[in-house]
Amino acid sequence: MPGSRPPEVKIRRSFPDVLAGGIFVLIGGAFVAGSLGYDLGTPLRMGPGAFPLLVGSIVAALGLAIVVKGLVAGEVIVFGSIPWRAVAVIVVAVLFFGFAVRGLGFVPTSAVTALLTTLASSRVRPLTAVAVAAGLTVASTLIFVVALQLRIPLWGPWLGF
């Protein structure tokens, strides 16, 4: 008979809950699997694997609980859109900094990182982007290298001088 179900059985699925729970299960599980490769030791002398095994299991179990709850009585969360362009650009910019700073040196790496990052905004105009990047490069060189004496070469060996 339709409509005879008591209201509390009404299922409220929540994608964010399931996703969050899934991430916890995945990471917790990975740490559990990894910790089994280390010495677990005894209660008296716990090995390097024991604590991560314990905490990893807790994370995975909590993740599972969040998934189940998300399938039955999830939290209402507006997930919203993902700014793919910003995500991609910022990831590339930061990775580039880490990868290139030793070889290219402080000034070129900062300039490229800043320029790339400005592109994360869809509203930015090219001229503004260049101006912002130039300004930030000068400012960060002054702050970090001149004022704070950070020991990073201004121009790196990849440039050949």
């Binding site: 900094f97 880490g98 700073v101 900062s110 990052t117 994360a120 912002v132 960060s140 970090f144 950070l150």
Partner: peptide
């Protein structure tokens, strides 16, 4: 548009300067 590139750049520089380790970045 000026603020967030500054945050990203300073974050990268600051983190790198901790121990000059690219993995921190």
């Amino acid at each position: 548009q000026v603020l967030f590139p500054m945050i990203v750049l300073f974050a990268a520089i600051g983190t790198y300067s901790l121990s000059f380790n690219a993995y921190d970045v």
